[in-house]
């Protein structure tokens, strides 16, 4: 693999995992957020060589193809936490990292954590609502 290849290129082009989106390409928008050894990073800023020997989680890995979805994903659907969907994989990976770090965040903590994930459709209210719903236990398979 060429040394200058970015993680987002490895995922999308090398492995065909196109769930991770590329937005701004400069680490600002959050569309390419993935978890490397559990830590949220921008796949557009990370050299792919950095992930050698690590565990990388993307949107594709959250739930099996036949379901069930994770409670968080379920809550994004129930609460309309997306419209066009481009930012959604990044939003869900960021929120997944949040709920692992802090399973019962306050609304302010959700907003602080999600601050770096831009959405140009929803106005954010529905995203915050979806995350708080998942944190309250909604969306778990019955």
């Amino acid at each position: 693999m060429p040394a200058h290849r970015r993680l987002v290129d490895l995922l999308r082009e090398g492995l065909g995992l196109t769930g991770t989106k590329e937005g701004c390409s400069v680490g600002v928008c959050g569309a390419c957020a993935v978890l490397v050894d559990g830590d949220m990073v921008s796949a557009c800023l990370m050299p792919a060589i950095f992930v050698d020997g690590t565990s990388v989680e993307t949107i594709e890995g959250l739930s099996p193809p036949e379901g069930p979805l994770t409670p968080l994903q379920e809550c994004f659907i129930r609460h309309g936490g997306f419209q066009c969907g481009i930012c959604t994989p990044g939003q869900i990976m960021a929120a997944t990292a949040l709920l692992r770090d802090n399973p019962h965040p306050t609304e302010l903590e959700v907003k602080r954590w999600m601050m770096g994930n831009l959405c140009r459709c929803t106005g954010y209210y529905k995203i915050v609502e979806s995350i708080l719903a998942a944190a309250s236990g909604e969306g778990a398979p019955s």
Binding site: G27, V28, D39, M40, V41, L45, A97, M115
Partner: peptide, 9 residues
């Protein structure tokens, strides 16, 4: 500083 993603890296 910036965002958590940047601070992680």
């Amino acid at each position: 500083i910036a965002t958590i993603r940047i601070r992680n890296q």
